[in-house]
Each structure stands twice: as structure tokens, then as C-alpha cells.
Write a protein that binds this DNA or RNA. Structure first.
Lengths: 207, 207
DNA sequence: ATAATATATGACTATAAAGTCACATTCAAA
DNA sequence: TTTGAATGTGACTTTATAGTCATATATTAT
């Protein structure tokens, strides 16, 4: 838990500190990250970090919570509507990728977090859960509408969809990491073409 | 590179040291692992570790290489034959899971390795490549035989198959982690049932 | 049996970075 | 404009553990 001093800081400075920390943790992992570098990156003195947080671990955990909250808020704008079909949802993957691409540092941090032993495991649970809930809802909607077969267990369908989409999202996302802002149109076309093939496989099978 | 002293040790002692190191690196990550603990786990003195390896990093890299070699050898017995169909291959997933389950520590170590910045990235490449090559060969065989449709790019098919199977393998593997040796038969039945549903989705589609 | 060489050990040293703190600076209130 | 509280700072202290080394023990050669 950050100290009250940190919470009284103006939002801009808070974010500067957290983003710097996330960047460093991301680059080096928890142990190899030096508080001094985080401080330098945020343009404050090392001592200040200790005015804000109990210790390095406290800072890390706050980064996790903060990052998770920001990420979830972003994702929220991409939540499936109550009667949305899973295919409609996937059709718009490009938007999702773009949203995530804006926060690539954050996402990299969140996914590395899962590997840090004994730090923020608790915070993580929530993250996966949200994604899972979306898929579960979409499967229910789709079964109701008849666009997804009803003879397969929901659990299996969930794993199947997550397996495929995670893999492709990662693949596509990595294509956008290099571009800072302007994305060449052929990039988008390429993704759309691959997406179409992916959906085709899901719909008509025979791998 | 280990020192010659280490290489002259009898195989049993070498393995004890490496397995202990892998266990510790696995549990704590590179930085948080104490050489003293590795030594204790292997039943040798801390100083001995430095008779065997240049430093901690040297030991880590050797663990990576050793682990990779062991893993590949195990996997080798599970390579697809030159005319094997991808569905035949998947049908026997249970064997693969069992083989991997015997080396769960090793596998956990190898997959965490990818996250350690600047240590054994080079060694990793080989690992993924092998799995990829298997799938590529299986896709070619299957397209030839007609059990996989020919109108989808190999690259897309590869991502699709790896996405699904990775996800399910992870799921199933985690079920076997708790059991040390005797596996209740209903466990195997459960996996077989899920596998059947997974294959059904791949074959006939409609998510 | 003796010498020479290789291996084992754990108390010790060096070092890097976490965490502290006395003092400086800024801010807000009266 | 003075005063008290909050915030900022970086030189200093502490701590943890990587890595060393003098010495002991085991092994091998002659």
C-alpha cells in the first residue's frame, strides 16, 4: 500500500512514477530493477520513492494493481454486448489489438507479472477471469442463436476459443509493436485476411 | 561452460547438482536463487559449485543446455513418423502428457527460462523450433492424405493447431502434476473424452 | 609408502543495491 | 512574512549473497 504522501501527489506525477517503474520492471524483472533507475526515469530522487512506498515490493504490487485497473478499464470498452455472437466479436479483433497496442508496455508488464514468484499472483487472478467471462457469455449467446453447436461442453469450447484467439492475438500484436503511430494499411489487410482464415477454420473445420 | 572438474564428476553427481539448481531456479527465478541453497540441495559445499562452474550465470546456462538436451531426447521418442496424419498424432496425446509429466520440473524450468532477460535466449530457439517442425510435417502429410483442407495457408494452420493443442496440453498436464506415480483411471478417461471433443471441433467446426 | 594432483569445504571478503535519515526546499495557513 | 507542515534529496548505513581462498581430504601415479 503506497504511503499517503504518494496518494496526495498530483495524478500526473503519480503516473510518471508508476510508468517508470513498470518500464524498468518490465525490462529487468523485479530483482534486477534498481530503485535508483526508477527514480531517475520519473525525474525524482531515490529517497522520494521511499516517501511514496514502503519498499520495492510495495511499489511492485501497486504497479500491478494500477496496471490491472487501467487495463480493465480499456478492455471494458470492448466488452461483448448481452446478445453478441462470438463471431461478431472476433470479427472486430483489429480494434482490440489496436487498443492493446497503445498499452503495450503495460500488457508486457502484466503478463510477466505472472512469472514473478510470490509477488502479485493474487492480483492476476482477476485479469484472466475477465477475459474468461467474456468468452463464456459469448458462447452462451452463440449457442442460443445457433451459431455455435450445442453438443460440445462449454468448458471445452472455452478452451478451444481461448487457445486459438490468444495465439493469433499474440501473433498479430507483435506485428504492431514496432510501429509507434502510423500503421501501414497492408498490415491491417494482412491481419484481416488471416482473421478470415481463422474464422473459416472455426466455422467449417477440417483443420 | 562448466569447468573440467565438473565434467570429470560421475554422471550421478553431475545430475544431482543440475537437478538441484533447476529446482531452485524454478522456484525463485535467477536472481533470488542462492548458490548456497543449490549446494545444500545437491549435498555439496558452496565452494564446490565454484569448482564446477565459473559463476551463477554459467551454471544457469549449463542447466538450460542440459535440460534442453534431456527434453529433446524424451520428445524424440514422440516424433511423428514420415507419413503420420495430424489426427493420428493428436490421438496419442496422453502418451505425450505422461512423458512430459515425468519431467515436470524440467519443463517448468525451460518455460520460465524464456522470461529471464539476457541469459539463455539463444538456447531456447531450438526448443520451439522442434515442436514447430513436427506440426509443419504433420500438416504436410495430412494435406497430402486429404485429412486436412488444402485451401488454408500452412502458416495459419500451424498457428491454429499450436494454439489449440498448447492450451489443452497445459490444461491436461496440470491435472497430472499432483499425482506422483499412480494415476486414477478416471483421470485418463476424462482427458480422452475432452480430447475427443477437441478433435471433433477441429474436424467439423462451428466452434 | 610417498609424492603429486585433484577435489571438497566453509569462514572470509568484496560489492552492489536496498533502505535510512538529517537537512534543504517548497507550500499553505494565519 | 512568518511559521509549521509536507515534500524532496542524496550521502550514508546496512544487508545479503556472490564469489574467493587457505586448508583439509581424497585419489592416483610411481
Amino acid at each position: 500500500m503506497p504511503k499517503k504522501t504518494f496518494l496526495r501527489l498530483d495524478a500526473e506525477k503519480q503516473e510518471r512514477v508508476i510508468r517508470s517503474a513498470i518500464g524498468e520492471f518490465n525490462k529487468n524483472g523485479f530483482e534486477r530493477t534498481r530503485i535508483e533507475d526508477i527514480a531517475a526515469g520519473a525525474g525524482v530522487a531515490k529517497g522520494s520513492i521511499y516517501q511514496y512506498f514502503e519498499d520495492k515490493k510495495d511499489l511492485y504490487i501497486y504497479c500491478a494493481e494500477w496496471g490491472l485497473a487501467v487495463f480493465m478499464k480499456k478492455l471494458d470498452g470492448y466488452a461483448p454486448t448481452s446478445d453478441m455472437d462470438i463471431f461478431e466479436y472476433f470479427a472486430d479483433t483489429l480494434t482490440k489489438i489496436r487498443v492493446m497496442q497503445e498499452e503495450k508496455d503495460l500488457i508486457a508488464f502484466l503478463s510477466l507479472m505472472t512469472q514473478e514468484p510470490g509477488l502479485a499472483e493474487a492480483s492476476m487472478a482477476g485479469m484472466y477471469q475477465v477475459g474468461d467471462e467474456y468468452i463464456v457469455r459469448l458462447i452462451a449467446n452463440s449457442k442460443r442463436k445457433g451459431s455455435v453447436r450445442r453438443d460440445i461442453d462449454d468448458e471445452i469450447l472455452k478452451e478451444y476459443f481461448i487457445g486459438i484467439t490468444d495465439r493469433f492475438e499474440r501473433r498479430w500484436m507483435s506485428r504492431y509493436l514496432d510501429f509507434s503511430r502510423e500503421i501501414p494499411p497492408e498490415q491491417n489487410e494482412m491481419v484481416q485476411k488471416e482473421l478470415a482464415q481463422m474464422l473459416e477454420l472455426i466455422k467449417n473445420g477440417r483443420g
